[in-house]
């Protein structure tokens, strides 16, 4: 079923995909049924040669979605125009049908946190995110999907619950939702909440694609590490999500401690079977 058409802009994410990383480029290149990958946008140059593995995938008409991790859309300060311009340029180069970023902040007061931090679920934070998403949307050539993050801490000044917070941001920005099933699991586990109750209240018709990743328990918390196998509970949650409304695509994120190829293939197969998608391996 490999399409031969070369459209200028690739089709939207579909089926089971995997986060493209240089360390597993060879593995990804050899997945026969793959139609969709995601790439960390900050790792792709805006000009000059693309990483060779990515060029190959584009030649196969595999959809490549740039996934930003450093925009800091949830920062109180306006988003950095140079970072938005980079994301826009990468989307253009890759003929991406959309880009994605997080509902989070990664820097403040001149300091880099080094990773995604949660926002207070307050009206003020909703305003800040919506203003930054609007700034980004004004420069991006394609739609943006927003991903709620996994957080170990909550702010003391939350005014909204998670579903209301996310729905309000999506409604006001018109953005798509990138739903990370492992994050839903992690947050529910760490807050003692019910993940299914959250799924029931999110606008699942707005999901552009979903993330799935592994994690581990440590010090009384579930950590969304992306360096461990996908736990059974997360796969079950994928099934529960698909039973409600199956997203167009599911993407496995792995960011280190790469397992042998056979194990990674088995994870992709397990994802496909949990969602009822064809295997890509």
């Amino acid at each position: 079923m490999r399409g031969r058409r070369r459209v200028r802009r690739m089709t939207g994410p579909s089926g089971v995909g995997i986060g493209w990383r240089p360390e597993i480029a060879g593995f990804v290149a050899e997945l026969p049924g793959l139609r969709f990958v995601e790439v960390v946008a900050e790792g792709v140059p805006a000009s000059g040669p693309l990483p060779p593995g990515l060029t190959q995938l584009r030649d196969r008409a595999v959809t490549v979605v740039p996934h930003g991790v450093r925009l800091s859309l949830g920062g109180a300060e306006p988003v950095d125009p140079a970072r938005v311009a980079h994301l826009a340029a990468v989307a253009q180069r890759l003929d991406a049908p959309l880009v994605s970023e997080h509902i989070a902040f990664v820097r403040a007061g001149g300091l880099e946190a080094g990773h995604l931090l949660p926002l207070p679920r307050s009206r003020e934070a909703v305003d800040a995110v919506c203003a930054n998403v609007a700034r980004a949307q004004a420069e991006l050539p394609v739609p943006i999907a927003l991903e709620p993050i996994a957080a170990l801490l909550d702010w003391p000044d939350d005014e909204l619950d998670e579903a209301d917070f996310l729905t309000e941001i999506l409604d006001r920005t018109g953005a798509l939702l990138l739903l990370d099933v492992a994050n839903v699991h992690a947050n529910a586990r760490n807050r003692g909440a019910d993940p299914l109750a959250l799924l029931d209240r999110l606008p699942l018709e707005r999901v552009a694609y979903a993330h799935v990743a592994g994690g581990s328990e440590r010090g009384g918390f579930y950590h969304d590490t992306h360096t461990d196998p996908v736990p059974a509970a997360v796969l079950e949650l994928v099934g529960a999500l698909c039973a409600r409304r199956r997203p167009p695509a599911l993407l496995l994120e792995r960011d280190g401690h790469y397992p042998p190829a056979a194990e990674l293939r088995a994870e992709l197969d397990a994802l496909a079977s949990a969602a009822g998608f064809p295997a890509v391996t």
Partner: peptide
């Protein structure tokens, strides 16, 4: 304000700053 509180939280997390009020 949000900017100040975000800065406080980041400083507490990565620069040895005082833990911001109200966080567990």
């Amino acid at each position: 304000g949000l900017a100040e509180r975000q800065a406080e939280l980041v400083a507490a997390l990565v620069a040895g700053g005082e833990p911001p009020a109200g966080f567990a």
